[in-house]
Every structure is written in C-alpha cells, then in structure tokens.
C-alpha cells in the first residue's frame, strides 16, 4: 500500500506541474507537448486501476496516432499563427470560477470526513477474455453501431477531396 501511495503522490505532482505549464505556455507547440505528457501519464495511471489493456490503448491510439495527427496539422500553419497565444481575460466573469470552487469544496469535504471503509477497492481482475466475452455477447449492438459511425469519417474525407479536386480543375 505504501508503494502505491508514493507512486500516486508522484504522479499527482507531475500532473499538477504539467497542467500549469500547459496553461501558461504561449507557444502552441510547447503547450501541445505538455498535453502529450499528460496523456502518456494517464496511460500510466490506468495501470494503477487494473486496466492494463486500456493503458496500452491510450498510449497507442492517443499518444501514438491522434496527437501525431494534430502535430502534423500544426506544421501546416505558418509559425506566426502559433507563436503568441494570449490569455484573454477581458470577458471573464467571476461566476465562472464557481464550478472550480465547488470542486475544491467537495474534495476538501471528503478529506475532512475521511475515506469510508466501503471505498476500498474490490479486487476485480479485468483480463482480455472478460472484455471480449462482454463485448461480443452483451454489447454486440454497440460494436456494430461503432463500426457504422466510424465509416462516416472515411466517406466524409472521400467526398470532401473529390469535391476539392473538381473545384480545383474547373
């Protein structure tokens, strides 16, 4: 238990540091790099929740594919657009801090009351056989819907670039 507590303390500290950095960097590429570190750390965090498969998927899909796509798009823009992104405080109202205050109040109230015994984890082992059983027996409709939805981006891309070609040639 003590190892888990120390590891989670270090991870929480890293999350705080990189969140602050991501908030205050002006250059979009640096900001992006901080968010990348956050995503990889979240994959590490999943290991502490007995979800090794989700951790690997998080790193492969998010850090490995989706964010590389974003970085690729960033390089298509000229450097001047990415350089000085100022924080715009003009239109900010004080009431927008209400949710943050509520969140901090809730966390503090949990700390004051103490952690009840029932919040200790029940040991569930989440392995791949269990996932696939659940996915293909109980959630088959969701998977088919997902495949249907995921075919939309492909079709959209195809239609978009066909139209682009047509307008470019004429």
């Amino acid at each position: 238990m003590i190892e888990r507590a120390i590891a989670l303390l270090i991870l929480t500290g890293l999350f705080f540091i990189f969140t602050l950095l991501a908030f205050f960097f002006r250059h979009l590429v640096y900001q992006f790099l901080c968010i990348l570190v956050l995503m990889v750390l979240q994959g590490v965090l999943y290991l502490y929740l007995n979800a090794e498969f989700l951790g690997a998927i998080q790193v492969i899909v998010y850090a490995g594919a989706v964010l590389i796509m974003f970085l690729f798009t960033l390089f298509l823009f000229p450097e001047e657009e990415l350089k000085h992104l100022k924080i715009d405080l003009k239109n900010l109202k004080y009431s927008s801090f209400l949710p943050v205050a509520l969140f901090i109040f809730l966390l503090l109230s949990v700390l004051v009351k103490g952690i009840p015994e029932s919040y200790q984890p029940r040991n569930i082992y989440f392995d791949l056989k269990e996932i696939s059983n659940l996915l293909f027996n109980e959630y088959w409709l969701a998977i088919f819907l997902l495949a249907f939805i995921l075919s939309f981006p492909m079709v959209a891309l195809y239609v978009f670039f066909k139209r682009e070609e047509k307008s470019g040639s004429s």
Partner: peptide
C-alpha cells in the same frame, strides 16, 4: 491511506 484510495 487517503493517497492510496481513489482520491488522487
């Protein structure tokens, strides 16, 4: 004990 729970 708090740190090892789901709090963080």
């Amino acid at each position: 004990k708090v740190l090892a729970s789901e709090y963080p």
